[in-house]
Design a binder for these strands. Structure first.
Length: 416
RNA sequence: GCGGGUGUAGCUCAGUUGGUUAGAGCGCCAGAUUGUGGCUCUGGAGGUCGCCGGUUCAAAACCGGUCACUCGCCCCA
């Protein structure tokens, strides 16, 4: 406890930020329910194996970004770096194949040990949607439609671009990977240091390198589209047709790849140019082999996750509902204090938002009521108490009137 | 893990080639106004100059280290 500061890459969330998060999440939940998704909440930590096996031993997330620790009984546990692995695990351990198809939504904190920068922190928050047990491309379309609806509702759809690509099935992906290795091998010594390493580890990643020299070489690299087998091609065109049917604008980006090993077929990202280096605001894809790979029954899956912090950066005040304006109760004197406490309680039971003025003379208390953005103030002085009335003052117009103590709730109706 | 930038009041920042009591605006508190807010005026509180060490007669300033924040790389929501 020596350092009284938040742990690196973590933040306290309050006031406007908290309200923005709540705004985004409540719209997300409403849209997800509309699409027939049910809420699932999985633990924020799992056995380390759950993530290691699903994300791939060599992925960055596993090799350098996991928050892993040993608990008192010696178990290796990891704070979740993403949602899909935990949900897939829940699907298996809950025997949910009997219930498939399953449509879930979830939201909560994620943890990755990374160097913080704009739009990236060690504890961050995601919303997440998954469909398990539907191998048909209609699920891809539905999930993308849901994402687009959600983004529209929070006013962001016209500020992001949907890019999609197909990574093909296992066979197509392997063929493409081989072709890429052959191609890049030619230019190996011209590639950046990073990309030379990628060539061994994950050649697909070279495609979205930000290095200028790499970009020139990538420009002439073979396209995944030419390596998709019949089945994969049909699948991808079904997804594209579905998007067109629903008027969801998108662009095919042949260079779009995903970092985690488990993706196949559809991969997509909603991106913005407004957030600097971290432009991906919501992204996901299909993972048909994942559950089987984890040791569960062969079950197709597709899902996406959106970053709350990144979405919140984009949400502007005009889309946010205004904070509810309270009514301030201002007692002056001992008797009024007691009456005020009772009145405040009664009004709150009836659903009013009540602020209490505790200190200072009337002027100070009104000033504080003003600062709290109160719509009205209820003034309770000694003489009012004697006559069993209060003064209700409209803080916008300055108009005020005396109201019988028993009729206060009625008089406050306009300020609800 | 790697590279750049920045750390001075609650917040945003100024602070001359090193020079003695470190400033402004906003915010906060109080008064002008013993029961009437927003505007105005007056006054006040609030600082280990991120931390440790070094150079110097003298360091907020220069040097080294360290921590934090921030932007970028890797990677990702």
């Amino acid at each position: 406890m020596a350092r009284l500061q938040p742990v690196r890459g973590t933040h306290d969330i309050l006031e406007i930020k908290a309200r923005t998060f709540d705004y985004i999440v409540s719209h997300f939940k409403a849209v997800a329910e509309r699409y027939g998704h049910g809420e699932i909440s999985t633990p924020i930590f799992e056995f380390t194996e759950v993530f290691k096996r699903t994300l791939g031993e060599t992925s960055d997330v596993v090799t350098k970004e996991m928050y892993t620790f040993e608990d008192r009984s010696g178990e290796q546990l990891t704070l979740r770096p993403e949602y899909t692995a935990g949900i897939a695990r829940a699907f298996i351990s809950g025997g949910m194949q009997q219930l498939a198809p399953c449509k879930f939504y979830a939201y909560g904190p994620m943890f990755r040990y990374e160097r913080p920068q704009k739009g990236r922190m060690r504890q961050f928050h995601q919303i997440d949607a998954e469909i398990l047990g539907v191998p048909e491309p209609q699920a891809d379309v539905e999930l993308l439609a849901m994402a687009a609806d959600f983004l529209r509702e929070i006013g962001l759809l016209d500020r992001v671009t949907l890019e999609i690509n197909s990574l093909g099935d296992v066979e197509s992906r392997q063929a493409y990977r081989d072709a890429l290795v052959v191609y890049f091998q030619e230019y190996k010594d011209q590639l950046s240091q990073d990309s030379q390493e990628r060539l061994d580890r994950n050649p697909l990643r070279i495609l979205d390198s930000k290095n200028e020299g790499d970009k020139a070489i990538v420009a002439n690299a073979p396209s995944i589209q030419d390596y998709l087998n019949e089945e994969s091609r049909l699948f991808f065109s079904a997804v594209c047709q579905g998007l067109e049917l629903l008027d969801i604008p998108y662009t095919v980006n042949e260079r779009l790849v995903r970092g985690l090993d488990y993706y196949s077929h559809t991969a997509f990202e909603f991106t913005t140019t407004e957030l600097g280096a971290q432009g991906t605001v919501l992204a996901g894809g299909r993972y048909d082999k994942l559950i089987e790979q984890m040791g569960g029954p062969a079950t197709a899956g597709i899902g996406w996750a959106g970053g709350l912090e990144r979405l919140a950066e984009l949400v502007t005040a005009e889309h946010m509902p205004e904070a509810h304006r309270p009514v301030a109760i201002i007692p002056m004197g001992g008797l009024a204090q007691v009456k005020a406490m009772k009145l405040a309680h009664d009004l709150r039971l009836q659903g009013f938002h009540i602020e209490m003025g505790y200190r200072g003379n009337l002027g100070k208390r009104l000033k504080r009521a003003n600062k709290a953005n109160a719509v009205a103030a209820i003034l309770m002085g000694e003489d009012e108490m004697a006559r069993r009335v209060v003064t209700v003052r409209n803080l916008d117009s300055g108009e005020q009137q005396e109201v019988a103590l028993s009729d206060v709730a009625q008089a406050l109706q306009p300020y609800r």
